[in-house]
Each structure stands twice: as structure tokens, then as C-alpha cells.
Design a protein around this nucleic acid. Structure first.
Lengths: 111, 111
DNA sequence: TTTCACCCTTACCTTCAGGTAAGTACCTAA
DNA sequence: TTAGGTACTTACCTGAAGGTAAGGGTGAAA
């Protein structure tokens, strides 16, 4: 495994997580929660409808979010995580723990 | 811990890793390797000098890369990872393992 | 006096993620 | 006939990341 191949493997993962709102959505759905489109709008007031649907569609295409359509009037669409999406939790936790390890005394102040 | 605060914690980590070349540089330095500027240029032929230095400087500012200047002519500058930078390895591994877990049979083909 | 290796720095341009604002389609209720 | 709720879609704009190309400073070697 070369540095480049390892890097591109991680890049593929990051590409799934990148996007201004994906992590927020993800954390709202962690724990098996099932939310409607309008629930997510309310939970994330700063997001526009365009962005919300765009991020959800990408996450669905990536296989971390499942979309459930109920054919009703008015329409009802629910979103939840796939098993694979749920499995992200420990990996993100590892990143958080790494961030917490940082030694504060590292002033790079020398000229 | 709210979904938003958890998300922003992870976002701070991703901000360190984002950047077209940072992961490639990171994987070239993993394992305690110490490389000169020109070594990195040779190792990553597609990168421009501007990008190489830009990414290295950001990684240095983030505290994952250490820069060692030898005052010589011609100049000699070496780069290696900090302890904290090395500690990223297992966290990235967790992401890679997560990616490997993905079930192939997930065709979202229904209309 | 010109060339060379090395490590950057600067100016300029292109691309694209993400933002705003408005429109669409459907049926219900008044 | 009009208003309203829900889940999108579309058009347009902006800022920042990243790309290219070129310059700069040093001293040894030729």
C-alpha cells in the first residue's frame, strides 16, 4: 500500500463527509432516529431547503442515509441512517479523541 | 452534547485534513519519516511548489507537521510529523475500516 | 560572469460548493 | 376560488480553494 493509495482511500471517505451540512444531519440522525424533511428543517434552522435536499440526496447516493416516501397528501418523506451510516459513529469518535489529545503547549512562535 | 456541537467538533478535525494534498503528504510522512522539500516534490510529481508549501504551512500551523531549517547554502529544509500528527494514523485507519465494511448489494434503483 | 540547485513567493485565472430567492405540484379545507 | 401545507426544483450569484507561470535570493562551481 503506497502513500498515494492510502491517501485516496481516506479521501473517498472524506468526500462522503464533506459538505457544509452533512455532519450536522448525520448527528441528528445518529441513534436510529427517523426524521421528516420538515423536522430536519426545524432542527437546522440555518439550512435552506435546497441545501437540505442536496445534502440528503448525496448522503443517500453514498449509502449512509435511507429515504422513505409515504404516498400521502400532504406528502410525507422520512429520513434515517443505514446500518453502514450508523457504523460511522465509532470512527468519528476516534477523530474526536485524537483532537482531544492535542497538547496545548505548542506555541510555534519562533520567527 | 448536541448534534451541532458534535458536528462542529468533527468539522474542526476535517478542516485539518481537507486540502487537495494534505493526506498524500501525511501518508508520505507517516512512520517517522523525515523528508526534504525536494524529496516531497519528487514523491508527489503532480503537485506544484506553491501548493506543496501552502499545504505544508497549513499543516505546520495546525500542529501536525514540524519544519526543520538547516542554515546552509544551498538551503535545506526538512519536514516530519509531530507526535500528534503520528497519532492520526489509528483514527484514519478507523475510517478506512468503516469504508471497507460497506455492503456491495445496496442498489438504490427503485423509481 | 553565467549557471545551477534549492526553497520558497507573487500575480493572475478558473472552477465549483454553497448561498438567496423564487417557482412547481399535489390535494384539502374554507 | 383562494389559501395553505409539504417536499422539492430552478436560476442566478459570490467567495474561496486550487491551478499555472514566473520571479527572487543565496553561494559554489564552471
Amino acid at each position: 500500500m503506497t502513500p498515494s493509495s492510502a491517501a485516496s482511500g481516506v479521501e473517498n471517505v472524506l468526500r462522503i463527509l464533506e459538505g457544509r451540512w452533512k455532519l450536522v444531519i448525520l448527528f441528528h440522525l445518529f441513534g436510529g432516529k427517523v426524521l421528516r424533511f420538515s423536522d430536519l428543517e426545524r432542527a437546522i434552522p440555518a439550512i435552506s431547503q435546497k441545501m437540505l435536499i442536496q445534502q440528503l440526496r448525496q448522503m443517500e447516493a453514498d449509502g449512509i442515509v435511507r429515504r422513505i416516501v409515504h404516498h400521502q397528501v400532504p406528502p410525507k418523506v422520512e429520513y434515517c441512517l443505514t446500518d453502514w451510516g450508523q457504523a460511522l459513529c465509532p470512527a468519528l469518535d476516534a477523530l474526536l479523541k485524537w483532537a482531544a489529545q492535542k497538547e496545548p503547549a505548542e506555541g510555534p512562535l519562533g520567527s
